[in-house]
């Protein structure tokens, strides 16, 4: 507990968060649950970027700027994803991934 914080601590935290996100994206039946899990994965990547910036290149802000780009792309992704979810729900009246089989022949 008293050992100094290293980059490995932050990378381990980001790794755990990413694995939770993967598990959720693979196992949730509800599409909004899958979108939430994807947000967790984006956040794990952002923690890594901020930690690399702090530990490896403390003189610049490139990692933080890159994390802001990731944040913007994540916001765009969730907006389009939720809009698609609403549109599909209107047609099929379900939110479960296994019922989304409109393209099945």
């Amino acid at each position: 507990m008293n050992a100094p914080l290293t980059l490995a601590h932050y990378m381990t935290l980001a790794g755990i968060l990413f694995l939770i996100g993967i598990f959720g994206a693979l196992t949730r039946r509800n599409i909004s649950g899958i979108l939430m899990s994807i947000e967790l994965m984006f956040n794990a990547a952002n923690i890594n970027l901020a930690a690399f910036d702090r530990f490896l290149h403390p003189e610049g802000v490139t990692g933080q700027a890159l994390a802001l780009f990731v944040m913007t792309v994540a916001a765009a992704e969730i907006v389009v994803g939720l809009a698609l979810l609403l549109a599909i729900y209107r047609g099929t009246d379900t939110v479960y991934a296994e019922d989304f089989n409109l393209l099945k022949g």
Partner: peptide, 21 residues
Amino acid sequence: VCAVAAVGLFKVARLHAGTVV
């Protein structure tokens, strides 16, 4: 899948166990 990914992720994280601020 998570277990396999965890092995790789934590192997990479261990490389930086000595990197301090």
